[in-house]
Amino acid sequence: MTETIVLRVSNLSKSYGGVQAVNAVSFSLASGELLALIGPNGAGKTTCFNLLNGQIAADSGSTEFEGRSLIGLKPRQIWRLGVGRTFQITATFASMTVRENVQTALLNFHGRLNSLVSLAERLYVDEAIELLARVGIAEQAARPCAVLAYGDLKRVELAIALANRPRLLLMDEPTAGMAPRERAALMRLTAELARASAIAVLFTEHDMDVVFAHADRVIVLNRGCIIAEGKPAEVRANREVQQVYLGSGSLFGAEHA
């Protein structure tokens, strides 16, 4: 695999009312790589994510995507550049079918969103089905999103996030609320997609089984600072990480050690 750096973050900082939520965070991410961002609740993971996707503005530091600065851009401008997102709590369009959800994203990607007369339902059908097939739920295309099982909704989100042919995916707790086997399957799928299409993936996660099995690299945040970075096994053996985050290890399987 060619190691092209897709995302480069340097000295990113943000404080709220005197509390340093993110403090001089720097890291980079290569195409096809899965990077996990872990840490205790309140360590600054969510803030870090929102800084990257443009929902909040950084106090200082820089973020570059494919050499372009993301500072000052709005979320939708960042999306235009080729960054996809999924959310911790699924956010889909409940009044639409699965296929229409993906079509809506495609309509915008192809710049057709302001059309008043064409029938949206009949546009980009094949492309939408193709995306749904890639995440393995093409057979559910006609169902309303509101009736889908949670694990399937997560897949819909992934299909939507792929609609703009992203080179970077930001996934906030992608497996939250799923059963263990579904978690493993979703992350396996994500890893396959990442490698096949050379997509860089940055994700946060609390399930250490998922992190240790699927991340290529792990960054540990505590109180806004990076306290450890490395291969899963290295991070897992780190004393400080065990103390502030991992605990005694009773809560995840031993098989990935």
Binding site: T92, S95, M96, N108, L113, N114, S115, L119, A120
Partner: peptide, 24 residues
């Protein structure tokens, strides 16, 4: 039922997701 109508419904159903797929 046009793309414009879908964009409106998208904004109503989930402003967060609509924003994330580049809809103003």
């Amino acid at each position: 039922f046009s793309p414009f109508g879908y964009a409106l419904r998208a904004g109503r159903d989930s402003p967060l997701r609509a924003d994330a797929i580049g809809i103003d």
